[in-house]
Structure formats: C-alpha cells, structure tokens
Design a protein around this nucleic acid. Structure first.
Lengths: 194, 194
DNA sequence: CGCGGGTTTGATGATGCTCAAGCCCGGTGG
DNA sequence: CCACCGGGCTTGAGCATCATCAAACCCGCG
C-alpha cells in the first residue's frame, strides 16, 4: 500500500530515503478507502487531508450560484487530491472533492505533513518539483481556456491525457474544459469526419 | 535598488538573512532597465531571466494563430515576471514578456538562482511560499474563468486588484479576463447604472 | 423488464465576438 | 495657437459560438 507512495516520492528527490525516513512516511500517511460518490472534502469545510491516490479516480469541483458543477481537477493513480488553499490556510473551502471510482488513498493532515517535512528535509525537494509541475500545467490550462475554441481544447486535452478521457465520462471532461456536455458531443462528432 | 528585494525576501522567510547572505543576493541579481515596449522575453526564445520588479509594470501574453494577444500575467512592483516553464526547463517559450511602463528590475539567471539557493537554503522557504500563493491565485482565476460571466469576472477583479486597473488600460485588463475590450466597455457601462 | 446514467440530437436563444466607425484627449510639430 | 495624429475608449449592427431546454436513445445491471 505505502510502497507506491515511497516509490513515487523517491522518484522526485535526489537524496535517497533512509529506512527510518520510510518508516516516518508510512506512519504519517493513513490509508483511507473512499467509495464512489463519497466526499473527501465538501465546500464550506476546511480541507483536512491531502490524499495520494493509490488506486481510483477523484475530482475537484465548485458549484456555482445556479447549481452547476465546474470541474477544476481530475485525479487518478499517482496524483494528489486536495484543495490546497483550504488545506494550508485552514480556511473553509469553496470546492468539493469526491471519488468518481472507489479509491484507495493515503491521506495526511497538514500538521502531520509539517512535522514530516521537518523530520525529512529532503521532502522539500518533492514540494518544489510538484509545485513547478503544477504551475506549468495550470499556466497552460489558463492560456488554452482563453485562447482556444472548444474543439481545440478538447483535442489537445484528449491528446495529452488519454488516461483521463478513458476514466471519466464525457460530461465530466466537458466541464473540465469549460464547455457543456452537448457541445462536447457535437465537437466530437465533427472530429470524426476528419 | 536591492534594498526593496532584500526587504521583500525577508518578509517571506522565518530565519533572518545574514549580512553575507545579503551580499550574495545582491551579487546574484543584476539591475536591468527595461523601457516601455521592450521585451524581457519573446516567444520562441528560452526565458533567460526571472525579473523582480522594483519599479514599473510588465505583462506576459501569448499570441494566437489569428494574431490576437492573450494576457496571462500582469506584474507591478514587488512581483516576479518570467515564463517559469521556459526558465526552469530551458525550453523555448510560448509567451512574450514586455514592459508596459519603463521599469527597473532586478534579474537573475536560472544558473545563478540555483547557486544562490544552494548557498542560502533559507530561500527555499521563499520558493515554497511564493508557489503556494501562486497556486491559490491561479486556482481561483481558473475557476472564475469557467464559472463567472464577464461582468462578475471584471467586478471581482477590479475589487481584488485596484492597482492593476489603475496601471493598465482597459483593453489589457479585458484580455487578462478573457474578454474583448468592447465587451469590457459595455460591461462597465452596465455597472455604472447600479 | 425497467431503471439510471450517460450520450446524442434538435430547436432556440444569449452571451460575447467581429468589424467598422466615431470620439476623446494628450502630445507633436508647423 | 491650431492641426493633426495615435492610442485608447465607445457605440452600433450583424454574427458565431456555445448554452439551454427538451426529448429520445443507448446500454449495462439489478
């Protein structure tokens, strides 16, 4: 269970983890099963956990004034799910995070995470790298949202993330891309003709 | 010139900078004047510098296939300007960064930055904090883009960043918000009526 | 068999874009 | 001192893209 996490972490840092490091990590991350449709976080709450997904699929979304869901994040194996702002600042979140498939996660609280990072400074490298990756990806997503029409947004996305297209239904993907499911359906039809 | 930077950095880290630290920082950051309309980075190049703005205003934008500019970042005093992905990965950038006002910046290369951070580990805390802030802000911007209509995007933005509304003309703000200048003009007219 | 979730299709309409023109204003030069 | 120019802002008319609403369809599953 924890092995995947250890392996994942190791791949992001340059100084190898000692055995005691690994023990500390195992203690800090608690296994948690989240059934399909169950919340890891509901809007209004403070985000208690950051979850590393060992197996399964989750999504993060806001709900606007009309009750429409807007997907802001899709996560599968080897990704992290949380609302970072709420988790770090301990403020109530505007987002929901729930499981789209039954998932096995390893969760950690902010307090435990802070302790863990103090005990294992090498982990700061992990943070740095992940933040970088996240910043790159978000920059691109922002730019695509304002500069590309629906069809290109979809084709680029499907190209870059075939796994996600497999795992999530179209209406979820559509919302992630900032379009409706009907538009996505029509867009795909168009694409077939080529 | 460097004092503002030192002060800025100090405000983000918990262990105070020693005098030698400060010296190292001053050596690593080179002052650079960038005149209005001059590029710090042009699409196709590798982003050579990260710039800390001491005085002035800059913008980051992409240009789409039709030649339209899409503003992805607006920066004034006490902000950082760069295309991070290009800067870190040394890949050609898709973005332009140029000065909107004559600006005084302190610039650092990636190599010098890596050295500097090795010499002063406390600076890692700075990175961490900045990345956090950046992640929070980008998350919100993304969500606003897909969940709010033009008018709310503008009013929220004007509320949150009055300084930027002052410093940049409307057509720039409009592009940043993902709308055209005409739409922004009409939206503002609407808002006056209330 | 029927139900729920997902997808498709069509008709209609809103939001925001495009293109084109005019206006305002500060700056420059005759 | 005035004419002109450029940059920015506004306004209008027509239009494209995409959203909405409603209905039908498809299919795996209890």
């Amino acid at each position: 269970m924890h092995d995947l996490l250890i392996k994942y972490i190791s791949s992001y840092i340059s100084t190898p983890l000692t055995n005691t490091d690994k023990e500390l990590i195992k203690e800090a991350f608690e296994p948690k099963k989240i059934r399909k449709k169950q919340y890891l976080l509901q809007a209004g709450e403070v985000c208690k956990y950051t979850a590393f997904i060992v197996k399964g699929a989750m999504r993060q979304y806001s709900v606007d004034s009309k009750g429409t869901e807007h997907i802001v994040g899709l996560f599968i194996e080897n990704w992290w799910a949380a609302d970072r702002e709420s988790y770090v600042m301990l403020t109530p979140s505007n987002y929901n995070v729930d499981a789209w498939e039954d998932t096995d996660a390893l969760v950690i609280t902010r307090a435990d995470q802070v302790n863990l990072f103090n005990s294992i400074p090498a982990l700061n490298e992990l943070s740095l790298r992940l933040d970088e990756r996240h910043a790159f990806a978000t920059q691109k997503r922002l730019n695509d949202l304002v500069s590309l029409p629906a069809e290109k947004r979809y084709s680029q996305f499907a190209n870059a993330h075939p796994e996600l297209v497999q795992r999530f239904p179209q209406h979820i993907i559509a919302s992630y891309l900032g379009i409706t499911k009907e538009t996505l359906s029509r867009v795909r039809k168009q694409m077939l003709k080529k």
